[in-house]
Simulated assay, not measured.
Amino acid sequence: MQNFKELGVPDELIQGITELGIQKPTEIQQRAIPFLMEDGSDFIAQAQTGTGKTAAFGLPLLCKVDPKRSEIQGLIIAPTRELAKQIGKQLFRFTKYAEHKIFVEVLCGGDNIDRQAKALQRPTHIVVATPGRLLDLIKRKALTLVSVKHLVLDEADEMLSMGFKKELTTIFGLTRQRGSTWLFSATIPDAIHALVKDCMGPGPQVMKVDKSHVVNRDIDHQYAVCMRDEKTDFIAKYLKRRKEERGLIFCRTKEGAIILGKQLSKLGFAVAVMQGDLTQKERDTVMRSFKKERFQFLIATDVAARGIDVEGLSFVIHHQLPEQVEYYTHRSGRTARAGRTGISIALVDPRERNKIARLEKELGLDFDRIH
C-alpha cells in the first residue's frame, strides 16, 4: 500500500486530506494519481461512488493549476447540483493549507445565476458545473472556456442517461484547446464508447478497477430474508434499535420510496424522502434538513441519491436490491466514509437469495444473514 507522498502528492495537499481523515489511498487513487500527475493525457476510469474518485482526479488537477494565472484552467462537469457542490467542497478542503490560493467556483441550477455571473468576475482557476447552468452562463458571456487545459467528466454515464449528450458535445467543442480529458464513470455503456470516439483523442488510457476492490472493506454486509409485505415491519424494528444513529434507505422506484416514507412516518420515525419528481428547491430543502439532523433517516431512489454526501451515516438499507451490481456499490458506499465503519443490509424475498450469491461472487464479499 503506497501513501499519498509516494504517489507524488505535495505535502500541503496531504495536510488537507489528512485533516479529512483520508489516510490511505484507495485503489483508484493509487492507480490514477501517478498517471494523471505525470502524464495527464486522456484518461477513462470505471469507478463507483465511495471509491475516492474525487481525490483521484481532484489532487492531480489542483497540482496542474498555475495559481499565478487568474483564468479558468480546469473544468469539472457533474450531472447533479448535489455532486457538483460536493466536489467543490472537497477541492476547497484539499487546498486548506496550500501556499498559493486556488479559487474554485461551483455553477449549478437552483442558485442565483446573476450571483454566479458576478462571482466569475473574480479570479477563478477551476470551475465545477452542471452542463445546463454552465452553457447558460456562457451564453450570458459570464465566462469563457478558451483557457481550459483539463476537462473532467464525473459520473459520465449518469449525465448521458439524464439526456445531457448534446450539452456535453457542445462543451467538448468549446474546449478544443484542452490538453487532456479525464472521464470517470460507474459503468461504460455503448453511449460512453460513442462519446469517447466522437469527442476524445485516440488511445485514451483506460483503467477499470476490479469489482472486488470497489467496495469499502470497512462495511459489514448483511442480508435478511423477508416477504415484500414484511419489509416495512423489519425496517421499523431495525430503526428502533439504532437509537441516535443515522441511515439511508434505498428503494428501487419513486412510488416505493413515497409509500415507505408515509408508512415509517405514521410509525413515528423522523424520515425524509428524496425522489425524482422533487423540484430543485424541494431537493435542497430535504437535504438541508437531513444534514442539519432534523430527520434521522433518508429514503431515496438511486437516481435521486446521486451526489448525496452526508457525513456520519451508520448504515444503508436496501428495500430492494438494484438490478446492476454497480448500483449496489453506489448505495453501500454512502456509509463507512473517511475511515469509519458502517453496515449495509439487503432485504430479499426467498426467491432472490441467488442475488446475494451473485454479489458475493462478483464483489468478493461475504454476507451475513440476520433475522
Rank of each mutant, 00 (worst) to 15 (best):
T285S: 07
K68Q: 14
V215G: 02
T341W: 09
S289N: 12
E311T: 08
M227T: 07
L7A: 08
Q116A: 03
L359V: 05
K211T: 01
R252P: 07
L151E: 02
L36E: 03
L195H: 06
G307Y: 03
A357G: 06
T18W: 06
D190E: 15
R351A: 13
G16M: 06
H193I: 01
R93S: 12
Q320Y: 08
A56T: 03
R140V: 01
D233N: 13
I188T: 06
I345G: 09
I308C: 00
A78D: 07
G132K: 08
R140L: 14
D277R: 09
K53C: 10
Q280C: 00
T335R: 00
D154M: 04
I258S: 14
T175M: 05
R178C: 10
G179P: 06
A56G: 11
E105H: 15
G132Y: 08
T26C: 09
Q222C: 08
D114F: 13
G132D: 01
G307Q: 06
D198F: 02
L174Y: 14
A142I: 12
L260I: 10
G88S: 01
K118A: 10
G50I: 07
E99H: 12
T335W: 02
K291L: 07
Q121R: 11
V106K: 05
Q280R: 09
Q86A: 05
D114P: 00
K355Q: 07
Y238I: 00
V209S: 06
K165T: 13
K292W: 10
T26E: 03
F35N: 02
L75D: 00
R306D: 04
M162K: 14
R306L: 03
E255F: 14
F4H: 10
T341L: 10
G276T: 08
K292P: 03
E82F: 10
L363Y: 02
K291V: 06
Q263C: 11
L151G: 03
G342K: 08
H150W: 15
V303A: 09
F315G: 01
G52D: 05
